[in-house]
């Protein structure tokens, strides 16, 4: 398969929030659907994720949040992506996000927000459309 056929996705959690059920399950789904998953797991900084995305030449960064730090970290990710002129990178967020924050995240440049209960097919179709 060509690199384009196996789009590369960074999967990570930021900060100290250790809730990784969603990140694990979705990473597996993406892998099974033909994505190349770079699983960074827990306790990442925004800087670390951006560095990995550049080194890996990833197309998509997928971040999962449960405890409520989503706006704080997405602001940082978006600012760093701008700083390094990563115009092609696509930010995707999953997790426990209050309804009112979905629009806020999109305004910050997030392409897709997948809240709990989103079907696997919706996530895969959404990411395929971005890659």
């Amino acid at each position: 398969m060509t690199a384009k056929a196996r789009p590369k996705v960074i999967m990570a959690k930021l900060g100290l929030d250790g809730h990784s059920n969603g990140l694990r399950i979705v990473s597996k789904w993406l892998q099974d659907a033909g994505f190349t998953v770079v699983y960074l797991g827990l306790y990442n900084t925004a800087e670390g994720i951006i560095k990995a995305a550049r080194e890996e030449d990833a197309r998509i960064i997928g971040c999962s949040f449960l405890e409520g730090a989503h706006l704080y970290y997405v602001r940082r990710l978006a600012a760093l992506a701008r700083k390094y002129k990563m115009e092609d990178i696509r930010l995707v967020v999953g997790g426990t996000i209050p309804p009112g924050d979905v629009a806020r995240l999109k305004k910050l440049g997030v392409c897709e927000v997948f809240t709990p209960g989103t079907p696997r097919s919706t996530i895969i179709a959404g990411l395929k459309a971005l890659s």
């Binding site: 930021l14 900060g15 100290l16 929030d17 306790y43 900084t45 449960l66 405890e67 409520g68 730090a69 704080y72 970290y73």
Partner: peptide, 11 residues
């Protein structure tokens, strides 16, 4: 702590 700020007091 450097990685703590975003998570202080959240949960």
């Amino acid at each position: 702590f450097p990685l703590a700020e975003g998570d202080i007091g959240l949960a």
